[in-house]
Write a protein that binds this DNA or RNA. Structure first.
Length: 826
RNA sequence: GCCGGAAUGGCGGAAUUGGUAGACGCAAGGGACUUAAAAUCCCUCGGAUGACAACAUCCGUGCCGGUUCGAUUCCGGCUUCCGGCACCA
């Protein structure tokens, strides 16, 4: 018989049609106040820095929509909002490059993005859309700044900052990766500026504690822990001999205190001037100049020789009153610990290297616990051990010695146990135009004055020249009408703060705003926030592990402490999608290897493209982009379409049937139907989209086999109807079309995910593998109820097996119920 | 250097707590249909050896070793790749 090829799958018409219907019927608008089984599913919002969404963004939003749709069909009230992280450097750089004002280019780009998001067919609630560059939004970003300010969590100080000479802007440590600007790859230099900071360091321990209460990838939590870098140790106060100035050091090895042979200060340390001996001033200043200039180029070199100079000053060891020289060296960081290190060349490799170069003495104060010998001329001995040359502490184990020495220092008021962190305060000011202005005023009489809440928002001035200035001053200063204002307190002439806020401030609270982004008199709807937050499921790139994801947690903890919200962790469950590369290289505009999804949508349709992204491989691993397999997914959807084109009437009949009323001996189809229902749900839930689609393909193959053999009874009809529901989260447009064609007037997304019947998964006959000495020799098909002895007899009788048993002695017989038999012979 | 993760056919990738390795696809080859092409459908498809053939035997999940009746899975030691951190005292 001739095989009919059937109708072509008219995806373009179908997809456009249903997107319109969904919009008209407001299918994706949910009643936030009436919802009973809330599920807040959030995906990191895009920053519209280019004209179009790239493939990575599609990869973020398509599969996540599939997840959200499944949850909806499982009976949850799913809130799945999307918005635009529109402020910030990428958007501004795009505007500068194209000579368009960022307000204009951002709006145009958002329009493109919105259309593309619509093409995905995502169930985004359009009423919840927010744009962080909208005054209606950033008014409340400024409000949050003021809240932090009034609670002592925002402050200003002069600080050496990472400065990108090309972007003309300050960079956060997180943005100055490998000493290079995250955006433009220029080498970062240092510059002293007065900057605004948020006191995230105050929350270091709270941020660590919260890790125990969230379901996040282990890797992400580890990265945050490393970033916070909590380290327990001691603060020990040395005293400078001439001036009597205290010089506290931080160490984790108080047990080596008697092995200290000199101190080293960071070149930038503020006391260097005060202690340096007059005879050494020239040399010290010269070194400090060089250290400041010797920027990141040197820092990057892998094997960098340590350098330093002697200050001419001496310090006194608080335990034995020994007089030791004070040096400065740039291997000591000004920003960690106290900026002063007690050097123990015998037991710290860095100090050892320094001592070798400058001929400083080495003293052993720890010996191995096992009595073995060590050779300090080869390098430092950094292990814990037993103390020697340490007076009253001799013979103690390092761990005990740390306790005893801490106690003694405490007693004499010269030290204490303390904790040091790698985490620094969050530098939030940017000398850039495209951001939320910091709502502060500087008055000659009153000093630093916060803008009153009633005067928010401080509008971003509409200026023509929005490019950064070379002096480092913000371009906002170019606007006289913005810059000069009246002091809110004394009404005298005053100047506004001209910096804008880091965009990570904008994205640290947006999930609160989604629930009602149109509110004008408050930042969020408390009632809805109480009901909907925290976010149940958050999906986004792993590149945000230490920035966005930590800042958002910090801001939420601040708001919690101010009693403005009643939860202190914003994202209960977090998962990352993998990265799509192009020929193994990261996709970026600068590399010119951007993949535009549009041509695939045009050629294959949105459903096919979405399914292909999900089918390509593991979602959390990502992978290299290769379009050669997309045909297979297009064929798959085409086959579904044609099956229903031909057997639509059967599916319609199947709609009216209930599973329990069907009598059929087709156990294979029963199994397949029920197994697929369970598997697709479980796999989508755990983001294993690829295997969910594979299961749907297998199910389809089974259905086709039934169609070919004419075995199309009630069970087949019923299975067809269920198939549409299973398809719905994966290919929403096609499923909705088929659902309508088989006689439904309501959306498939308003029906419930089918139940599966466990009993169908238990097959009467099963195939058991038979091994001899662990090697597969054959299989036997037996009844499920077979006894162990009967199974063994059947296994041994199998012709492929029996010949391996001839003239052998059976030593052992292993039976794994339902799986296999292994016969061990000799 | 330190901390994670990974390595499976020509390719992307499957493989619930150790239990039939290679599901599902792609590509390729052969065939059907067609004037032809596209589309569609069917068959083969990890490697080696033997046979006309169905088939049989051996090898095979980065490398070496171990535990086990049995290892892609567990343990020890390497190699390579990816991600993160990198003078943090």
């Amino acid at each position: 018989m001739k095989q009919q090829s059937g109708a072509q799958y008219p995806f373009a018409a179908i997809e456009e049609k249903w997107r319109k219907v969904w919009q008209e019927k407001k299918l994706h608008e949910i009643d936030l106040d009436a919802a009973r089984k809330k599920l807040y599913c959030l995906v990191m919002f895009p920053y519209p820095s280019g004209e179009k969404m790239h493939i990575g963004q599609w990869y973020n939003y398509g599969p996540t929509d599939t997840w959200a749709r499944l949850k909806r069909m499982q009976g949850y009230d799913v809130f799945f909002p999307i918005g635009f992280d529109a402020f910030g450097l990428p958007a501004e750089n795009y505007a500068i490059k194209h000579g368009i004002h960022p307000a204009v280019s951002t709006k145009a780009n958002i329009d493109f993005f919105r259309e593309q998001l619509r093409q995905i067919g995502g169930m985004f609630d359009s009423r919840a859309e927010l744009i962080t560059s909208d005054p209606l939004y950033y008014k409340w970003t400024q409000w949050i700044f003021l809240k932090l300010y009034h609670n002592g969590l925002a402050y200003r100080k002069e600080a050496p900052v990472n400065w990108c000479p090309k972007c003309n802007t300050v960079l956060a440590n997180e943005q100055a990766r490998d000493g290079r600007c995250e955006r433009c790859d220029s080498l970062v230099t240092r510059k002293n500026l007065v900057q605004w900071f948020f006191k995230i360091t105050v929350y270091a321990d709270r941020l660590l504690e919260g890790h125990n209460r969230i379901d996040w990838p282990e890797k992400t939590i580890t990265m945050q822990k490393n970033w916070i870098g909590r380290s327990e140790g001691s603060e020990i106060v040395f005293v400078e001999e001439k001036t009597g100035l205290p010089l506290p050091v931080f160490t984790t090895r108080a047990d080596t205190l008697l092995g200290v042979t000199y101190l080293v200060m960071a070149p930038e340390h503020s006391l260097v001037d005060k202690i340096t001996d007059t005879s050494r001033i020239a040399e010290v200043n010269d070194y400090r100049m060089k250290a400041q200039q010797a920027t990141e180029i040197d820092r990057l070199s892998v094997v960098r020789e340590k350098t330093g100079v002697f200050t001419g000053a001496y310090a006194i060891n608080p335990i034995n009153n020994e007089r030791i020289p004070i040096w400065i060296a740039d291997y000591v960081l000004a920003t960690y610990g106290t900026g002063v290190v007690m050097a123990v060349p015998g037991h710290d490799q860095r100090d050892w290297e320094f001592s070798q170069k400058y001929g400083l003495p080495i003293r052993q104060v720890v010996k191995p616990r096992d009595g073995g010998s060590i050779d300090l001329s080869q390098g430092a001995y950094e292990e814990f051990g037993l103390l020697i040359n340490s007076g009253e502490f001799d013979g103690l184990d390092s761990l005990t010695a740390i306790e005893k020495i801490n106690a003694k220092l405490s007693e004499i008021g010269r030290g204490r146990k303390t904790i040091s962190y790698r985490l620094r305060d969050w530098l939030i000011s940017r000398q850039r135009y495209w951001g939320a202005p910091i709502p502060m005023v500087f008055c000659d009489n009153c000093g630093e004055v916060p803008v009153p809440e009633s005067e928010l928002p401080v509008l971003l001035p509409e200026i023509n020249d929005f490019r950064p200035t070379e002096t480092g001053e913000s371009p906002l200063a170019r606007s006289q009408s913005f810059l000069y204002t009246d002091c809110p307190r004394c009404k005298a002439k005053a100047r506004r703060s001209t910096e804008t806020m880091d965009t990570f401030v904008d994205s640290s609270w947006y999930f609160l705003r989604y629930l009602n982004p149109h509110l004008t008199d408050k930042p969020w709807d408390e009632k809805r926030v109480k009901k909907w937050l925290p976010v149940d499921f958050y999906v986004g790139g792993a590149e945000h592990a230490v920035m966005h994801l930590m800042y958002a947690r910090f801001i939420v903890k601040c708001l919690y402490d101010m009693k403005l919200i009643d939860f202190d962790e914003p994202f209960i469950k977090l998962r990352h999608q993998g990265i799509i590369t192009n020929n193994g290289a990261k996709i970026s505009k600068s590399r010119g290897n951007v993949i535009n999804p549009d041509r695939f949508i045009e050629r294959y349709g949105s459903d096919t493209f979405r399914c292909y992204l999900m089918f390509m491989g593991s979602y959390s691993d990502g992978g290299d982009w290769d379009d050669s397999g997309i045909n297979g997914v297009a064929r798959f959807l085409g086959r579904i379409y044609r099956l229903f084109d031909k057997y639509g009437d059967n599916a319609s009949r199947g709609m009216a049937l209930s599973y329990k009323s069907i009598t059929s001996s087709d156990n294979e189809l029963k199994y397949c139907l029920n197994h697929t229902i369970a598997k697709v749900a479980a796999d989508i839930e755990s983001l294993d989209f690829n295997t969910a689609i594979a299961a749907m393909m297998e199910f389809l193959n089974v259905l086709y086999k039934r169609a070919e053999t004419g075995d199309t009874g009630d069970l087949f009809d019923y299975a067809l109807a269920q198939y549409v529901k299973l398809l719905a989260p994966l290919a929403p447009h096609l499923a909705e079309e088929l659902w309508s064609r088989i006689g439904n007037s309501d959306s498939v997304f308003n029906c419930r995910w089918p139940e599966f019947y466990k009993e169908a998964l238990i097959l009467e006959m099963m195939t058991i593998a038979v091994q001899v000495n662990g090697k597969l020799r054959g299989t036997v098909k037996v009844a499920r109820t077979i006894s162990e002895s009967e199974l063994l007899r059947a296994a041994k009788a199998n012709e492929h097996v029996s010949r391996y048993l001839e003239n052998k002695v059976i030593i052992k017989e292993i039976v794994v119920p339902g799986k296999l038999v292994n016969i061990v012979v000799k």
